[in-house]
Amino acid sequence: MVTEPLLTEAQDNMQEGRTRGTATLILRDKTYTVPAGITVRQAIQKAGLVPESVLPTRDGELIPEDERVRDGDVIHLVAVISGG
């Protein structure tokens, strides 16, 4: 039986396609800091938000949820829920 070798944090990050650093999510007047390297969808979840209720944009353009957030990224979330 082969046991998995323990990975260092750096290797772990590389394996999951992560890069170091953080990205910022902005929803209305709130900002959330998330680690770079995870997907936009994961980042929204990590911020404690419901992906179904927001749309991620960068520079006013809609971005795919499976895109990975990069170090220094600023992602504006557009709330899709309106009242009434």
Partner: peptide, 18 residues
């Protein structure tokens, strides 16, 4: 519309949808 029940219901339904 802030705090409207409909918004609360939408949020609940979106959690189910997730």
């Amino acid at each position: 519309a802030q705090g409207a029940k409909s918004i609360y219901y939408k949020e609940l339904l979106n959690k189910l949808e997730e």
